[in-house]
Design a binder for these strands. Sequence first.
RNA 1: GGGGAGGUGGCGGAGUGGUCAAUCGCAGCAGACUGUAAAUCUGCCGCCCAUCGGGCUACGGAGGUUCGAACCCUCCCCUCCCCA
Length: 363
Amino acid sequence: MDTPHGRVETPVFMPVGTHGAVKALRHPDVVEAGASIILGNTYHLFLRPGDVAVERLGGLHRFIGWSGPILTDSGGFQIFSLGDRCTVREEGAEFRSHLDGSLHMLTPERAVEAQARMGSDIAMVLDECLAYPATEDRAASSLRRSARWARRCRERLLALRADGGAVNPGQAQFGIIQGGTFDHLRRESVESTVAIGFEGYAIGGLSVGEPSPSMYHVVGETAALLPSDQPRYLMGAGTPEDLVEAVGRGVDMFDCVMPTRNARNGQLFTSQGRLNIRNARFAADESPVDPACGCYTCRHHSRAYLRHLFMAGEMTASTLNTLHNLTFYLDTMRRIRDAIAFQAFEKFKLEFLASVSGPLPGS
RNA sequence: GGGGAGGUGGCGGAGUGGUCAAUCGCAGCAGACUGUAAAUCUGCCGCCCAUCGGGCUACGGAGGUUCGAACCCUCCCCUCCCCA
């Protein structure tokens, strides 16, 4: 996948850097972990420091000092996650800022403008991320609103392109498929969204609490309907198992807070399963987090030391843990790409799922 | 030497006759986390069985008052502060 800031090998995992930084890491760490593209969030940057401020500072890339590709989420997920701080109307979403309680209106057009000002390489349309579970009626009306918003987003972007002067003239825009867990609604959403025409398509409204088999089913059904010559992006997923399962169903792009957030909370992913570095069993464990991992953390530090740092509340614990988890995720994606190149994906998938799922043995 | 304050679960610190195995914080133990309001949240946390629950030992020590004491009385031990 080519972007104005470089080529991205797919399938790809995009570390989440909500405020323009992957939490606990410096950009070189993110690169070292193997990331080629990172994600920022329109809602958060819109509130602080403000999209206009970012534009004045030369755009998001220059402002944060990241020269690679950046995808900005639209703020659609916040409609879901901010719950009662947000009121959705046809015009757009009215947010009460989590920072100071002030009221803000994020319309589809405004979300497009904000992302245009910031100049991300891939902008997402503003959608409504539906909570799970949802009734069929609710899912249907929500998807239709998202589709109307998608059209407004596209029209606004095309107008901006026609005007010229955008921070990043090559910015791509992705549409987002909704429809809950209903196959026919997903199909309807694909049809109406693809009809508008975007540079890529995302599958939204998943990884919001539904059972894995349900998510895999929807991913499979939806991805199969999307254009095969354009990127397919599963938003918000997932666990290492989710990544492999979704790639097998045709997904090219992922983002998830799991490797970074869980790292800060002590959960580490390894080739043998997950572990919680807080556990007393690691107090005298001199082995690395994952003997099969080549990250800085695993090359230099023992589980005992990482546990000590975590228990002591040292911020370095977050950094070392995040570096490891991100490396594990990005390494997994690299192995997936290699397996696909050698036409050995199914074999890889079986072995990976057998070893990685569940807790680390020996507890 | 004189005067004052106090000793409660690993630590700090509430409680001051029954509703106290004892608020709360920290520490400890475990779990959760999927387009980040998250370096966060939840549970457990005297001992023994245990699903509800039940049993045992406990609030410096020893006596006493009382139907009943961490809480009241007596003596003892210890700590801290102020003045000499």
